[in-house]
Amino acid sequence: MAEIRSNMAGSVWKILVSKGDKVHAGEDIIILESMKMEIPIAAEENGTITEVHVNEGDFVNDGDILAESE
């Protein structure tokens, strides 16, 4: 199982995957927005999304778990 974590404080701008989606390492999963910057968060491993923990518009902190895959 892999945890996909936020690397900065900001809000969730776009969620590009849903539970059950297959993802490849390097594929953008979620786009965060903070201080006028859009920062895509990519999957680190190939796998299937088992959980998405956030909704668009949510505020997240650096290190928060955004989604999980296996």
Partner: peptide, 13 residues
């Protein structure tokens, strides 16, 4: 800028 000097990612707070 309020940002991490290494990753250059935003650092609000």
């Amino acid at each position: 800028y309020a940002e991490d000097p290494k990753t250059m990612l935003p650092s609000p707070g």
